[in-house]
Every structure is written in C-alpha cells, then in structure tokens.
C-alpha cells in the first residue's frame, strides 16, 4: 500500500541550515548534508530544502548544495526558494534534486508551471501555496505569506493542477508556527477536489496533529520543521505511533 509521507523541511541560508537544531550527535548541525543524512537515517520519507537567502550568489550556492546533498542522500528531496525560471530548474535537477517547488513565481507567471512540466515532467513540479483565511475565504498570499492577493486558494489549486503540477504543498498561514495542528478542513477539500497529492504544512506541534491531517485532512504527506529540528517529535517514534493508529507508514 502507498504510505503517507513524513517530510522534514530544512531552511537554508547561504548554504547553511538556519533554525536552531538540537541534534546531539551531529558534528555540525548547520551542515545541511549532515542533517539531511541524519533525518534519512531516522526514517524521513523525503526532505525539502527551502533556500531563504537573498544574495547575489544564491543560485550558485544552492546548486552546489544540491550536488553535495545528492551525493550523500538515498531518499528523494525537493528544493525551493526563489526559483523563477526554466534555467534555474534545469541546473537543480541536473545536480540531483528530485523535485523543485515554486511559489510566488508561479502566481506571477502561471505559464512557468506548464513550461516546467512539459520540459521535465509533472512529477518534479511541486507548487507551494501559502494561504490565509480572510473572512471565511481562503486567499493566496505571496512572499512567504506577507503579501495578500485576491486569488482564491481552491481555484488557484485547480489551475495549478491543470497546468501540470505534480503535487501541491499547502501552507496555512493561520496555522503556521502555532503548533495547534494543520488546516484540515481546507486540506480535505483540496484532496477531494484535486487528483494530485497534497502535502500539508503549517501547524505541527504534536503527534496527534499528524494523525489528524492524514485522517481528517486526507493529506498525502505532512511537512514540518521546528518540531523535528528541536527534537520535540522524533521521526521514528512518530511513524511507529501513526502506524499503530492504522495509517500506512514505511517503518
């Protein structure tokens, strides 16, 4: 049976992981390659690297990082953050990334989704959508959730699917950072209205939150950052508990 996936997200700045990390066994917790290998060893199903640096050298640094990660990692990984052209994607995939995630650039230039899926295949195109519930309407937000738009989440998600995205990574800005659980109602609606996998993001605090987002939110995968980095939830234990709750897991 196809399992649900657990995906740690690593924020990267200038080639280093940024969030504080409580891994005791690591020589260098700021080294993305070492951290990635540790997560793979613990049972992470996939990893996401989100580059939040804003330097001139960003493209080069990220391409080098992808190469270093691909050399060591034996599970799939996605790269995102500021990717806005076919050329950006080409170098990242050539260097060994399995998928790329695009966000604001897809809203500004939706044709980019078509171009990427035609050139590289839908399977490597993840469209990340940040949204906030404004007066009962889910509205897409840009630039890490800072800039509101008038675009409806569900309409945009459908368009993204039609244009050839292979997966949607949905982050609820209302839930992100709260540790109160994922936006399961919106997630379930996305999962029912679309026929591509949906990755839930934003709100993970406890093991039950993961259980709920798979069972109530019908998510195909769940992404989290700080609960894993700060060792509040250990991936092996999380997957064992979810498995006991009847959720298909690779253990």
């Amino acid at each position: 049976m196809l399992t649900k996936r657990i995906i740690p997200c690593l924020d990267i700045k200038n080639g280093r992981t940024v969030k504080g990390v409580n891994f005791v066994d690591l020589r260098d917790a700021g080294d993305p390659v070492e951290l990635a290998a540790a997560y793979a060893e613990e049972g992470a199903d996939e990893l996401v690297f989100l580059d939040i640096s804003a330097t001139e050298e960003k493209r080069k640094t990220l391409a080098k990082l992808v190469l270093d990660v691909a050399e060591q990692l034996n599970i799939p990984f996605t790269v995102g953050g500021g990717i806005s052209s076919v050329e950006d994607v080409d170098i990242l995939l050539k260097n060994g990334a399995d998928k790329v995630s695009i966000n604001s650039s897809a809203v500004k230039n939706p044709e980019l989704i078509n171009q990427l899926s035609e050139k590289f295949g839908s399977q490597c195109v993840v469209v990340a959508i940040d949204a906030k519930n404004v007066d009962g309407q889910w509205k897409v937000h840009l630039v890490g959730g800072k800039v509101p738009t008038d675009i409806d989440l569900f309409e945009w998600a459908k368009e993204v699917e039609q244009r050839g995205a292979g997966e949607i990574l949905f982050t609820s800005m209302d839930h992100d950072g709260t540790k109160n659980g994922f936006a399961n109602e919106a997630l379930a609606r996305l999962s029912e209205e679309l026929n591509i996998p949906i990755i839930a993001s934003g709100g993970a605090g406890k093991i039950e939150h993961f259980r709920d987002t798979f069972q109530k939110g019908k998510a195909d995968a769940a992404l989290a950052a700080s609960v894993f980095h700060f060792r509040e939830i250990e991936i092996g234990e999380l997957k064992r508990q979810l498995g006991s709750a009847g959720i298909p897991m690779r253990i």
Partner: peptide, 13 residues
C-alpha cells in the same frame, strides 16, 4: 485510472 491520485508519488511495497 483517475480512481487514484495521479501521479503516484511516494513509498509503496
């Protein structure tokens, strides 16, 4: 068939 999500992405047995 569209009775399952397409593409299949992830770990299977």
């Amino acid at each position: 068939a569209n009775t399952v999500k397409v593409p299949q992405i992830g770990w299977n047995q």
